[in-house]
Design a protein around this nucleic acid. Structure first.
Lengths: 335, 335
DNA sequence: GCGCGGTGTCGAACCGCTTCGACGTCGCGT
DNA sequence: ACGCGACGTCGAAGCGGTTCGACACCGCGC
């Protein structure tokens, strides 16, 4: 347990540097020597001391993930982001340090304390106050989301703007003329959270472009919020026939409320969800949905981070193209 | 950024050790000296290098959290555990390294690599294979859950056995004689996950103790699973009047299915949920529930871990007493 | 007036690993 | 036969802290 590289060197009859080179592969070591060293490592159960390694190499093999651990939002999407990040990180031999979003000083702390090689931030807002801080850091950062000005940071996300357009176009093609967006909670919109903003924009664009009539309602992430939002929509646009729902928690209640109000899905109202596929299918009626590939996004974020760490490649922005899967919740408008 | 303790010492006109003592408070420093040092630290924006500190002090100020990041189970409970752990850790000036449950080697890696001061494990099974590994580690570990044999490790959890009894007793007191437990998915039960096992045991105990008739059905975490489980219960015990549901995801579908099958809640069937309060209230009908204080459990886990790290107190097991809150889903049995 | 204990500060020895320059050895070409 | 480069290994100097023993200085009691 308390074995050091010196113990290994002694056991293998080589110098410590040789052991180090066997471990890192940064210099050629002859096969017999390498085998002796590897043997010693195994026999002694040796593990390099992370702190010592970090000190000497200024690489920690840890990356920070700042996740919004508030309970209100999109729990399962967040979970998938996180698993995506963690598994991808492991593929690069990195571990993940978890920071909460409300702890903005946390980034500073872990970064200037040299605890991490890179940072991944979720839940980016249009003018996120964390961005200037990130820019000043020694470590590269990747944003999951798209701020107004990335200031040279890498960004990755689903192209929510295109997703909004795609959802509306799907409805428009089926003859729907009056559509609604049931989106994020008001607080999320007021923060100008990136994904909510862009979704909204895409929705509006396509509504205008296709000459539809459209209303937008924020929607709290609760049953009550869903009911309210649906009722507001029905009030503002009584003969709505297409609804785009971008709120995982409210989703089941939206559909239930529509039915309660006498609108059959999909005969009277078509519903397009924007959510992970498992959420869309785990409903009484399998929902047509635009996938949020959270796991993939997390993975890509890590890849971009590592690309900068390992080969300091320049920052880039990647928006993943949305994919719509038609299920049972959308149908042609009856007229 | 690249400022070191030497820079600070130079700027303050003292030795590095003095700076160190100012930071740690482990030796008395006169007020004027301390102030000069603190000033220099602030002016230079100095942060100690985490690796160097870990190397010299063999304390990392990081603790590992192994969480089951599978998407299937109890997502929001897990989230609350995690936030509980993270916020509590911060209160002890620690950060949290996130490990996934499927990566058993991860504990070994972070522990013998001296990346963490302690480990917190979620989702413990009765004979968890990780336990022997944890016992061999240099760092203390805290289990969230209660294995058959803790082997000297600290444990903390809701007293699920008491929770099971409490839920049944609540129903029994209201005159219900035929009750059912809709519990965890089969896979979770087959792993003998601690909480599921204990819940089951408590349910059975109280059913026997109160002379009730009871059935137990596993329940997958999906709509389909909930429907199936409810139907199986209705088949096995057609005149069931009390149902205990210990499955957050299935919960809404269980209630919906009961209604679909013509059983009104609470007039025909009383439902007691075992879940966090927000889940219980965010339903069409506010549900009587036994609280799972996930946030608190996470917090206590960290406190126990830190107690062992800082003052190496002996391991202990703490089971939190369950609390039942009566809401609208339970009523007296009609006979 | 002198020794004594306490207080505050310093110097130096680590902590365990990486990395760079140096060096010995060998096989090759001429 | 000799020089030279390539290959494999070593030694030592950091990396940036912590901590322990030493020591200077002070006021105190006798």
């Amino acid at each position: 347990m308390a074995t050091t590289i010196d113990d290994v060197a002694r056991a293998a009859g080589v110098s410590t540097s040789t052991v180090s080179y066997v471990l890192s592969g940064k210099r050629p070591i002859s096969a017999p020597t390498r085998q002796r060293v590897e043997r010693a490592i195994r026999d002694l159960g040796y593990r390099p001391h992370a702190g010592a390694r970090a000190l000497a190499s200024s690489r920690t093999n840890v990356l920070a993930l700042m996740a919004p651990l508030r309970v209100d939002v999109n729990v399962s999407v967040i979970m998938q982001f996180v698993t995506g990040v963690v598994t991808a990180a492991r593929a690069f031999d990195h571990d993940v340090l978890l920071l909460t979003a409300d702890e903005v000083a946390g980034m500073e702390r872990v970064a200037s304390g040299s605890m991490v090689d890179a940072l991944v931030m979720m839940d980016i807002e249009a003018d996120d106050p964390r961005i200037p801080v990130l820019v000043g850091l020694r470590q590269p950062a990747v944003l999951i989301g798209l701020p107004r000005d990335p200031e040279g940071l890498s960004c990755v996300d689903l192209d929510f703007e295109a997703a909004g357009r795609l959802a509306v176009r799907h409805l428009a093609r089926r003859g729907h003329r009056r559509v609604a967006l049931l989106g994020s909670p008001r607080a999320v919109l007021e923060r100008h959270t990136s994904y909510a903003d862009r979704m909204l924009r895409g929705f509006d664009q396509e509504v205008a472009g296709s000459g539809l009539e459209g209303v937008v309602e924020p929607c709290e992430s609760s049953m009550a919020g869903a009911v309210e939002a649906v009722d507001r929509v029905l009030e503002r646009l009584p003969d709505v026939t297409g609804v785009v729902v971008h709120n995982e928690v409210a989703l089941p209640w939206v559909v239930a409320t529509l039915r309660d109000r006498g609108r059959h899905v999909p005969d009277d109202v078509s519903v397009v969800a924007v959510c992970p596929p498992d959420v869309a299918t785990n409903q009484p009626l399998p929902l047509t949905s635009v996938d949020i590939p959270a796991h993939t996004i997390g993975k890509v974020a890590v890849e971009m981070a590592m690309a900068r760490v390992d080969r300091d490649e320049p920052a880039e922005t990647r928006l993943l193209a949305p994919v719509l899967v038609e299920r049972a919740s959308t149908a042609a408008a009856v007229r």
